[in-house]
Design a protein around this nucleic acid. Structure first.
Lengths: 226, 226
DNA sequence: TAGATTGTTAATCGATTAACAATC
DNA sequence: TAGATTGTTAATCGATTAACAATC
């Protein structure tokens, strides 16, 4: 009747970080309790969905009262695996790699950057965000000696699949991929592909759609029957 | 019977950039035609879904033959609004802002960076990716004189909502937001929130889930009935 | 013509919303 | 106790998959 077995749907999982974020903010503002209704208003969901989502886990709420913000936050924190620490490396120490290395938010949540790797001799040897940039030849050994959990791929797309293969062969736990390819990994290794370009294209789609709508409103639309 | 009216579902829209990406690769490899079945194999979708998705637009395919890769690519390119040029500014010229500024992929697709803005006097005055970093006080005017379409927000989360408001008041068309808040905009302005942190948390969720599964397999799982 | 593959309709599956009994 | 709000069951909605007639 519990956890191990029931598979949480991807739709729910993708909402969890959002709950985490909003609850974190409420916590900072010293809000003690919140009802699904109130939270739904803030987050722009239905109260029903929130209750449905949360009921995937243990019983978090209290009838007639709502949810204790602190408890709920901490439960979701744990569900997301944020009560652990993850040792990370970044492969590809270019602009994006450096940007991620310098992001304090990740460190704060337990993602500890242990090293960075590149092939460019101009970059290798530098220290970025307090961490050495090493030659990629040393990656394999480093993963073992430093017990790396997560590899962040910030290389050009051509290099990414090989890097991913190498990471998997080292039994890394997860890959966070920023190269514009859909990386695959064998069972046991989790991959999260980011695809900034896809996000930008979605934006441009909607801008264009918006333009059409406005033109339509103004009545200047030419019915483009084919 | 056509475009203007029918609303394309968000699920389909989010897949379009992926089609675009895969078709672009096929095009580069000089593949001339592809069937929904073949494409489904490559992309890891069902053939049925591909046909269903594409049938939202014009008739792209040819019965008994499949799809002409070049045609389909160009159609999707157009649907995504990538046959236009967008003038962009980046607000917040820190690490991430700089990384995006230096990304060649965006420029290649018609997203032209016109200027960058910051409040940090140490950064203002620099030139990044061939573009001036200006003081944020000049943002408003710049948007008008340079007909900016898209504002990319790379500021800390505290500054982001005010920046967004300002952009909206300038009648910008779209906002691409990297600050960890869900920005809202009035009708007419399109917002795409990226949330890298959410993506990372999803990864850590799945790593943790994977760990549980493995422990379970090995039979060491303690049934945690409540 | 026969074979292949589309576009589309119908069936299924999953996710969201509504409703309400349980209970704090 | 009365009021509030949960967790859960049932109803609805939307998205994916299957099937197949249309047709290149």
């Amino acid at each position: 009747m519990d956890s191990d077995v029931k598979k949480i749907s991807i739709a729910v999982i993708k909402r969890l970080p959002r709950y985490h974020r909003y609850l974190g903010e409420l916590l900072q503002r010293d809000v003690e309790r919140i009802s699904s209704q109130e939270l739904s208003r803030i987050m722009g969901l239905t109260a029903s969905q929130i209750r449905q989502d949360l009921s995937n886990f243990e019983e978090f709420g209290q009838q007639g009262y709502g949810y204790r913000v602190r408890d709920l936050f901490e439960q979701i924190n744990k569900i997301l695996g944020l009560n652990c620490t993850y040792n990370c490396v970044i492969i590809g120490a270019g602009n994006l790699g450096q940007a991620l290395a310098n992001n304090e938010d990740f460190k704060k949540r337990g993602f500890v950057l242990k090293g960075m790797f590149d092939i460019n001799p101009k970059i290798v040897g530098l220290k970025i965000a307090g961490v050495d940039v090493m030659d990629i030849d040393n990656l394999k050994e480093f993963i073992f000696t430093e017990s790396i959990d997560i590899g962040v791929i910030c290389t050009p797309k051509e290099a990414a699949p090989d890097i991913a293969k190498m990471l998997c062969s080292c039994k890394i736990k997860g890959i966070w991929n920023f190269a514009p390819v859909d990386l695959k990994a064998p069972e046991g290794v989790v991959v999260e592909n980011v695809h900034l370009t896809d996000s930008l294209f979605t934006l441009s789609y909607r801008i264009q759609e918006q333009k059409l709508r406005e033109r339509f409103k103004k009545g200047t639309a030419i019915k483009n029957k084919r």
